[in-house]
Design a protein around this nucleic acid. Structure first.
Lengths: 253, 253
DNA sequence: GAGGCCCACTTGTTCGGACAAGTGAACCCT
DNA sequence: AGGGTTCACTTGTCCGAACAAGTGGGCCTC
């Protein structure tokens, strides 16, 4: 948080959360913020761009920025491991390996992990909990080049992501998530203590290194009610202005 | 798409999708792109920032940018109505109003739509389809100030968002989505042609104007298999570099 | 050969300036 | 009162420059 624009963004975030700028109120103009913090306008723009991306403020050319909401909820904006996410919410995460074995890669593994057919992968089945309550069943598939390290981890390792970073400096840099709903299978139901057929939120994910090399792919099934996911949104630069029916042509000079 | 940085972003997108830059390959440096397009480096940075936000390329200080993937899949990145989204996928969306009535706002409505207690709201139950197949049950609640316009729409209106824009120039500018899974109720099951208790993907959403004024809130329940949602991710500015075990202190001068 | 050092290159941050484009309110005229 | 115009203000776009910080590969030393 050394960059000046990040400091300013954080200050604005706290001002919004603290009620200095109420929901629906207008933010000071860029020039005023620039003067207040003693920086150039471009630096202020970087700061408010972050708030805009988070969905905290709305932006429109010509009009002052509007405060849309003060969100404390966890969103997908940051890539976090389950353990890190739980910690940031002030809750304790647990994890336990149920099953762990190597097998040849099937077509799905080859596709998602960019492997050659016939390569070996490591499959792991984990159950994870939040404050003692079972919350999620996680099926991970790792390519051979990380399998050794994963196998050496303790079976109740809290954060695999953290462990892999500590052990071999592996960074989970990018992720793609696909979301849908599925019915709990016999195994899922047993592990989560629900009846078979109960609805589960499924998130399938591929995680890669900085260089885009796949590290794992994962099928996470969440018991509903315990965890929800939030996303913010805005129409980008759609020039939709006031009304459309009045099709007045641009003034001709 | 008149802004220069958007043109450059689009050119790069097409180059990536077209295979000029393969997945895993390195993008040209900012200076080279700047020279190639005849713009300043800042303009190139704006363009690649868009690609980074979309998850197409990865970025790390000091290292060249990496192509992470060429994605055609629909994501939450753009706020789209169901109809617009369907159209962009080359499919046809349908919609039918099942039920529509006014009622006093309950606590949930007051909270989400920022109303005074006792205000009147319009509730609408719709079923929507894709290429003739029933896909989603949608329960919308509108505040009084948009209720009149919504009530006047035809019952098989394809795009409510488009209609409200055409009629009164109302722009759905921002959205917040919360995702979980639920079991289909008796009504849901009947409307979607599934058995009761089947898993559904639920997205609850509040949409607001540019000024942050809530326009509607909605409970959408998707039949799984027909539609999935994708999200991209990256660790922001986490300075995690190579390895952690080698705790070498910063060089002292 | 292994390890450490150095250096060219690349991305990140910040400045100050200039103009374009859109908004909203005050103002004027009918 | 209603409708249109004008105008100060605000955000969006773009430039050119400079320095900081991190990467990766080559080089040298042991």
């Amino acid at each position: 948080m050394s960059a000046r624009h990040e400091e300013i963004a954080e200050a604005l975030r706290q001002a919004i959360d603290g009620g200095v700028y109420a929901v629906g109120a207008l933010l000071p103009s860029e020039s005023e913020l620039a003067a207040r913090y003693g920086v150039a306008r471009g630096t202020v723009r970087q700061a408010v761009a972050a708030l805009t991306a988070e969905g905290r403020v709305g932006s429109r050319q010509g009009a002052r920025r509007v405060v849309l909401g003060n969100h404390r909820s966890q969103s997908f904006a940051e890539l976090r491991s389950f353990a890190q996410w739980a910690q940031s919410m002030g809750r304790t995460a647990t994890g336990r390996v149920i099953e762990q074995f190597r097998r040849p890669a099937d077509d799905e593994d080859v596709l998602r992990l960019q492997l050659e057919p016939g390569a070996e992968v490591l499959q792991v089945l984990r159950v994870r909990g939040l404050d003692g309550e079972r919350v999620l069943v996680e099926r991970n598939v790792y390519p051979a080049w990380v399998a050794d390290t994963v196998e050496r981890l303790p079976r109740d390792c809290k954060s695999v992501v953290q462990a892999l970073y500590d052990e071999v400096g592996l960074v989970f840099a990018y992720g793609e998530h696909v979301i849908d709903a599925v019915a709990a299978g016999t195994r899922d139901a047993e592990l989560l203590g629900m009846r078979r057929g109960a609805p589960l939120l499924r998130i399938r994910r591929v995680t890669t290194t900085h260089a885009g090399r796949p590290i794992e792919w994962s099928d996470d099934r969440y018991r509903p009610g315990s965890v929800t996911f939030a996303i913010h949104n805005s129409i980008g630069s759609n020039p939709l202005s006031r009304r459309a029916a009045t099709d007045d042509p641009p003034r001709e000079l």
